[in-house]
Design a protein around this nucleic acid. Structure first.
Lengths: 220, 220
DNA sequence: ACCATTCTTATTGTATACAAAATCAACCCG
DNA sequence: CGGGTTGATTTTGTATACAATAAGAATGGT
């Protein structure tokens, strides 16, 4: 199997992250380093290292008395997260438009084809969709060639939100993502930074509203 | 003296940060955890904790083989840093405009008075200027009430750049900062988010050009 | 002399043991 | 009862020792 040897702190990071994201932990739940060490099967030293990273991603939160808990986000914070992510990803798209090469463009097309295939299933294969979506956005970020931007983005990844809600996306909404991506690719091919930027802005903002519509009580 | 007891990891963080910022370390210089432990007088455990924070601020950098070195920034990266900071601080200013209260407004005025006093000296008291400047921007960030934004900003603090160059600022340039701050205060008082945002954008961008003019060879 | 390979050393990674601090509960005093 | 204080327990913080890995030096074959 693909069992690449991996530092203990990395193991801890992935296990804890999965623990939180796969809903085994509920927002606000208290976490002790010891329990996390049990879960991940490594020592507290490595857990602490992993926790530091998760803290930066704001998946876990440290109280005034240094105790850990799973982050809980208010509606306002979710909105703000999408806003910031929109600004930064739009900026990344603009930079990428200037820097992208033919190979990366082909890769984007291939990834978006996977994404469309996932949407075509009945019911849509949401897991594959999310995977392709993430790789699509990651590649754009790499093309932007801004180490700083790459450092900032992890704190704005709304995976916990997405997981909760993606299964509620309609096929229409998922399709719209594919269409957005196609237009993004066109903008990149034309090396038109401001086109890329505005498409990305709408793309992210639409994702937010898809989220809010499915998540707020009013929609029920 | 104000010698508040402080965790060892915090001590390490401050000592190492100062070591880098006060120019005792040059960009690209290799750092070993052991040497940093000596410098800061605590164990490697705490040093590693501190280093993790500095890595997030991108003051230190980890090579592929996990070795540490002082970050070195290309001109392009400095430009990008100011661009990102401009976007984020402008956003913060817009949020702050809606949320600020009279007390915070008074605090901003008081801080900017300190800043003006520092500029009035001959020669200008750059250290006090920088201190007041930092507090001014920090307070705005707090008023923006966005934990996420607060988490993001430290990675965009250009103190190393500023330290290198601030002493070269002309009194005219320093004064312009005070004027910008006054206008920001006016925008806040009027609760005009878009005014605040645009003033902040110019303010940060101007700082970038002041930097580049004094720092590039063409200016000599 | 040059490249590869082994041995040595330097450096980072991890676990464990202990110290410090915070929480919780029992208790006393009013 | 209520408020605060002590003591026990849980939880986090730090140091040290050792393991794993990477870099550098020395050696040998061509």
């Amino acid at each position: 199997m693909t069992d690449p040897i991996m530092p203990a702190s990395e193991t801890a990071y992935q296990k804890i992250r999965a623990f939180i994201l796969q809903g085994e932990a509920s927002p606000g739940m208290q976490l002790t380093e010891e329990k996390l060490a049990e879960i991940s099967g490594v020592s507290r030293t490595s857990v602490r290292d992993a926790v530091r990273r998760l803290e930066n991603e704001m998946l876990v939160v440290r109280s005034a008395s240094k105790r850990l808990s799973v982050a809980e986000w208010s509606d306002g914070e979710v909105d703000e997260m999408f806003t910031l992510r929109g600004m930064l990803e739009a900026h990344a798209a603009a930079r990428a438009a200037h820097r992208i090469d033919g190979e990366a463009l082909d890769d984007l097309r291939a990834i978006n084809k996977e994404l469309k295939d996932a949407v075509k299933q009945s019911p849509p294969d949401v897991t594959s969709f999310l995977s392709a979506n993430r790789r699509f956005h990651d590649l754009i970020l790499r093309c932007a060639q801004s180490p700083r931007l790459s450092k900032l983005m992890p704190a704005l990844v709304e995976q916990p939100v997405v997981r909760q809600t993606a299964h509620q996306y309609s096929k229409t909404q998922l399709n719209q993502s594919a269409v957005d991506h196609d237009e993004l690719i066109s903008a990149f091919a034309a090396k038109d930074a401001s086109w890329a930027k505005s498409v990305m802005t709408s793309h992210i903002r639409r994702a937010f509203h898809s989220f809010s519509v499915t998540a707020t009580p009013e929609s029920l």
